[in-house]
Design a protein around this nucleic acid. Structure first.
Length: 387
DNA sequence: TCTGGGGTCCTAGGACCC
DNA sequence: TCTGGGGTCCTAGGACCC
């Protein structure tokens, strides 16, 4: 049976959302001028999180360093991100989409799929999509693109066609005409490395990729990925719209220093900070972790990461921090300048029974108490900041 | 110009067991 | 003395996404 899937994508999400807020405050609409959302512009390591369409026309791209964009366009308007506001905008957006179909999969803060199979037909899908798009604009003040297709891949590819504020279809019988002429990089899951590998072998368009034999493709990218690319390049994808949010499999946090650091005290302070953040998140979500990993990035962007198992699943900051400290000591020579330090946890369980080992560190109760007061402090800060 | 932060999945190789 | 093959678990590293 022919499915009908919509992929709805907020145009320049963070930038649009900041613009909506500023317009409400009587400020000029930054969507109409070269503008970006970024981190602290005085930090030379800040990068661009979102760019307006006029900024994109000047060649300014997401993930580009702010300093570089300022050289391209000295009059660039720079605004700082407002996460609480973005979250509210996202919720409003998702809620409108859910009214069109409850079979909804949130793909990121600004994108979702909805299964419209029983809600419209191929004949009126475009009209329904336009209604959704106009409703978001009228209710929330920002524009979206809606891609329509018979599966998630095609819907997502379609929403990426001309922007902003557009509805596009990509039905199976339109694949050859609308998708095959595109460069391989435009295909979902084809990133920089895969593009390089493909073009080095004369595969430049999605159409060429679609017609490439599985044998050659497997040699280039491995069997599993080859199979997926082959299916996707031919417009096939049978993955369902997943309404259940998958549980997190890992948590991590990292800090990039404004200057590369060598002082162990500085590194340790950062490790402490990220350990507090990660441990707080797993406690908030009622997880315990059995694996702790620590990673450092050097000046040349090379990354070393090391992980270890904990004796038992834990959510105690001090335990996680101590494992990370040990790992750091194992991989870092104490001299090579460090650009970034990070910490992650994985192998998560919801095990609630705390095994009180006879040999448990007598300090453990003190550590837990410290964590409790840390969590409370964060919770109360959150409450006051909402006032 | 000089590259953030937070995730997921896959692969290859080693250890270990039968 | 020299030796197979399969399965599982773990770690490190790489590629991709937003």
């Amino acid at each position: 049976m022919q499915r009908i899937i919509f992929h709805i994508d907020v145009n320049s999400a963070f930038l649009s959302w900041s613009a909506v807020k500023m317009v409400r405050e009587g400020k000029p609409d930054i969507r109409l001028v070269p503008s970006v959302v970024s981190g602290d512009p005085s930090d030379r390591r800040s990068i661009i999180t979102a760019a307006s369409i006029p900024a994109k026309k000047l060649g300014i791209k997401t993930a580009q360093p702010v300093s570089m964009a300022l050289r391209t366009c000295p009059s660039l308007v720079i605004v700082r991100g407002d996460w609480a506001w973005y979250k509210a905008c996202s919720e409003g957006f998702i809620s409108i989409c859910r009214n069109y179909s409850p079979v909804l999969q949130q793909f990121s803060i600004d994108e979702c799929f909805i299964d419209m199979t029983f809600r419209c037909n191929a004949g009126n899908a475009v009209e329904v999509a336009n209604r959704l798009k106009e409703e978001v604009k009228a209710e929330l003040g920002f524009t979206v693109n809606v891609g329509i297709g018979s599966n998630k891949l095609l819907a997502k590819m379609a929403s990426d066609f001309e922007k902003p504020d557009k509805v596009h279809t990509l039905w199976e019988n339109e694949v050859q005409e609308k998708m095959w002429p595109l460069g391989v990089r435009d295909l979902l899951w084809v990133g920089k490395k895969t593009e390089e590998r493909l073009t080095a072998n004369g595969i430049h368009t999605i159409g060429q990729l679609a017609q490439l034999g599985m044998g050659s493709l497997t040699q280039l990218v491995g069997q599993k990925f080859a199979l997926q690319l082959h299916e996707n390049a031919n417009g096939r994808d049978d993955s369902p719209v997943e309404t259940e949010m998958a549980e997190a499999k890992s948590y991590s946090a990292e800090r990039t220093f404004s200057k590369d650091l060598t002082d162990p005290k500085d590194i340790d302070r950062a490790l402490f900070n990220v350990a507090c953040i990660v441990a707080h998140r797993i406690r908030r979500d009622n997880f315990r972790a059995s694996t702790v990993s620590m990673f450092i990035k050097y000046k040349d962007f090379s990354v070393v990461q090391k992980q270890c198992r904990t004796e038992q699943p834990t959510d105690v900051t001090a335990v996680i921090l101590n494992e990370a400290r040990r790992l750091l000591a194992e991989v870092w020579d104490g001299q090579t300048p460090i650009r970034q330090v990070g910490l992650g946890v994985s192998k998560l369980t919801h095990e609630s029974a705390i095994q009180m080992s006879l040999f448990e560190d007598p300090q453990m109760e003190y550590y837990r108490e410290w964590d409790r007061s840390y969590d409370e402090k964060l919770a109360s800060n959150k409450n006051t900041s909402r006032l």
